[in-house]
């Protein structure tokens, strides 16, 4: 564990709490892509099939939290606050993402086993899981401030992981190509968002696309 990784994981936790706060406080999931949240649930379930494999208490508790919270968010969106979800805004075709990630995972993986291929699939899928949300944002052209804080924390979590990998490469000679490439792509997807978040939200303005 190092500073970057711990901060990254805490940002990831924070992003989920901000999302839950947004939904509970406004009693609405408007502006949130159900498809992105569904993809995250798929990511966590397929990645943490090794849940019973002991790494540390921290690792196990975080895995349980990520699986449970992602499924809870699906429940909030699909059942509790269903009326506030507008599917006509959430039109990104996730079938292509799922198909492409599965294909890539079958071809580019470390070991061709069931668990490993699904782990690789989850890494690739996480990289692109934010696309339906960003697509929704670009369609509506604006977002509630709290939703942008959620997206910022989520993007920051990924950006910090890049620093963690650089740190681990120099201190432990830790190499993980699959995670590096997917993580770099994932972080890059946030660059436009980061720019507008910095220009507008951090200067007290509403998030609006130019």
């Amino acid at each position: 564990m190092n500073f970057f990784r711990l901060t990254a994981d805490l940002m990831h936790l924070l992003s989920i709490f901000v999302l839950l706060l947004k939904i509970q406080k406004t009693r609405s999931c408007s502006g949130i892509s159900f498809k992105t949240q569904l993809l995250y649930a798929v990511v966590f379930v397929t990645r943490y099939l090794d849940l019973l494999k002991w790494i540390s208490l921290y690792n196990t508790l975080m895995k349980i939290f990520f699986i449970a919270s992602s499924i809870y968010i699906l429940y909030l969106m699909k059942i509790k606050f269903r009326a506030t979800y507008d599917p006509s805004q959430d039109t990104f075709r996730i079938e292509f993402l799922l198909g492409a990630c599965l294909l890539l995972a079958l071809v580019f993986n470390y070991t061709f086993t069931f668990i490993e291929v699904l782990w690789t699939f989850s890494i690739y899928l996480e990289a692109v899981a934010i696309l339906p949300q960003l697509f929704m944002l670009s369609r509506t052209g604006e977002a509630e401030t709290i939703t942008t804080h959620y997206l910022f924390a989520l993007g920051a979590y990924r950006g910090l992981y890049l620093l963690n990998w650089i740190w681990r490469f120099y201190t432990e000679h830790h190499i993980d190509w699959i995670v590096w490439v997917a993580g770099a792509i994932q972080t890059a997807l946030y660059s436009d968002f980061f720019y507008i978040y910095y220009k507008k939200v951090l200067h007290g303005q509403k998030f609006e696309l130019p």
Binding site: H12, Y110, Y161, D176, V179
Partner: peptide, 10 residues
């Protein structure tokens, strides 16, 4: 590089 890849990150 070990083939038994350890996934210790989240």
């Amino acid at each position: 590089h070990n083939t038994e890849h350890k996934h210790d990150e989240l």
